[in-house]
């Protein structure tokens, strides 16, 4: 149920509409509160990293944007339009499948375990969405997919099936696959967590280049504090389903204000 005391606009308007806005978003599994009335804005072109202990709700934030999880309360807006809801007779109602499909076209996601399609080659993985969903011709899709594979350094392996690729290579193909759909928002869900330490760099380099060369809006969940510091415009520290503290990397990582942030960061640095 949507809280009656909060006014949720049908559309966000104005000069600086955020690319992503969470308004009062809550999510529960039974008694467990995963997200607790979360408010979060991500500006167009901004790179925001979410850190925090496991179970703090970080991954849930990304999965909600990708419509993989339903929300219990609140509204999420993408590019000024409601994602979880839609307008009907001047009121916001739960989004139907058609609305979610329309909104999903703005969003791309990379997963911890890559989730490449095992029965397709790297190239076919990158062509599948453009051809089957966007209706682009095969030739055009192939050309674009090859460009993207080139960009992530996987052009030579384009005819290989995922089972023949290392974790780092699979994740790079997965990034190319997501980009092939030309999303406005890219979500990276612990994309280096399942990788062997020596190949993590392959993937972080690709993401670093994306940040440098593109104006994509990006949300990333990661355990790699060093990488987050290097590429983020802003870091959010999640705890217990809320943002405990947020700010530019230098502020948050070097001079955390909250006790929990300090504890978390010192635990992470000790572990490294």
């Amino acid at each position: 149920m949507t809280d009656k005391t909060i006014h949720y606009p049908l559309k966000l308007e104005g000069p600086d509409v955020p690319m992503v806005r969470f308004m009062n978003v809550s999510k529960r599994y039974g008694d467990l509160v995963v997200l607790d009335r979360l408010d979060l804005d991500v500006a167009a072109g901004e790179m925001v990293t979410i850190i925090g202990p496991s179970g703090s709700g970080k991954t849930t934030v990304l999965r909600m944007i990708m419509t993989l999880e339903k929300i219990d309360e609140g509204v999420i807006y993408i590019d000024g339009e409601p994602l979880t809801h839609m307008e009907k007779n001047g009121k916001l109602v739960r989004a139907n499948q058609a609305h979610m499909r329309k909104m999903r076209s703005k969003i791309g996601m990379c997963f911890q375990h890559f989730n490449l399609f095992p029965h397709m080659t790297a190239l076919e993985n990158c062509m599948e969405g453009p051809v089957q969903v966007l209706g682009i011709s095969k030739d055009e899709a192939r050309e674009r997919a090859m460009e993207l594979l080139e960009m992530v350094g996987m052009a030579e392996k384009s005819d290989q099936h995922p089972s023949r690729l290392s974790g780092g290579q699979q994740q790079r193909v997965a990034i190319a696959r997501a980009l092939a759909m030309r999303p406005k928002v890219m979500l990276f869900d612990e994309v280096t967590s399942a990788l062997d330490p020596e190949v993590i760099n392959e993937v972080t380099t690709v993401i670093r280049n994306l940040v440098d060369q593109h104006s994509l809006t990006m949300l990333m969940v990661t355990h790699q504090i060093g990488f987050a510091r290097e590429i983020s415009d802003r870091i959010c520290f999640f705890f217990g389903g809320r943002i405990e503290e947020q700010g530019p990397p230098t502020d948050l990582l070097d001079e955390p204000q909250e006790d929990r942030t300090q504890q978390f960061l010192s635990a992470v640095f000790d572990a490294n």
Partner: peptide, 9 residues
């Protein structure tokens, strides 16, 4: 989930 993320029906 990956197929959904590619917005497939």
């Amino acid at each position: 989930e990956a197929a959904l993320a590619l917005n497939m029906s």
